[in-house]
Design a protein around this nucleic acid. Sequence first.
DNA 1: AATCATATGGACAAATTAATCCTTATCCTA
DNA 2: TAGGATAAGGATTAATTTGTCCATATGATT
Lengths: 127, 127
Amino acid sequence: MYVNKIPQALDYGVSVTMKVIGGKWKPCIIDCIANGINRPADIRKAIKHASLRVINHQLTELLAYEVVSKQTYQGYPLRVEYKLTTFGKTLLSVIEAMQKWGDAHAEKVAEIAMKRNENIGAAPSRP
Amino acid sequence: MYVNKIPQALDYGVSVTMKVIGGKWKPCIIDCIANGINRPADIRKAIKHASLRVINHQLTELLAYEVVSKQTYQGYPLRVEYKLTTFGKTLLSVIEAMQKWGDAHAEKVAEIAMKRNENIGAAPSRP
DNA sequence: AATCATATGGACAAATTAATCCTTATCCTA
DNA sequence: TAGGATAAGGATTAATTTGTCCATATGATT
């Protein structure tokens, strides 16, 4: 596993939160799971711009931080389900706050990004 | 300016929010300014682990996204003040939500990070 | 003139994160 | 047996973000 060289910031609340949900696809994946999209392959379909490898990687970290739990089922086809833990559910209001702010100001932000000549395009999408 | 190669995600609220406050020091800088620490050199002192160069860089982006405004004063020593714009103030509740969640769960997250052998240490600090 | 405090930003290097490619494994179905 | 669907993750490269070093500029102070 990659080990940081620069010590990380965990005594400032925002940094703690970022540590847990700060990955590019993590809030998106949490959204999916909260909405009953539980299997990796289904999450993959819901988030069309992330590969299965990337989703798995993020799921592994969310699992490590106990945001989600994992249940493996017998049978065919191979079946795994991720669920939000009680702890994970406490994140929903934070994500919701971010989501609301972003939705409310998306146009303005996009406009500025455009002017700055940034590469705006396809994006993570809600389930 | 660096131009992204991979198109960015601005049609998902969380991504929009991350675009604006997603930098390592941005929430911290916004906190500072909200608390009356307005000059680059003072922000520098408040956030001991970021260099002036880094703070300036982040301030430039916050300025571009109209989160802060900039006022230059005549006289000596050279004096510049950044203030939150009305728009910038709308971010405070989001940052506060992240801050609260992080504060509430800092111990658990730190513990997991430790177990994962991550490099935990000095951090951005609140003003 | 030399020096200090403040602010800004170019050029580059280092660190971190995300993405790609590929392999393994299970169990059903044809 | 071969092949498809699902899941997991190693190894590597690409992209992005942070950080460092240094140069410039202003106006006072010594």
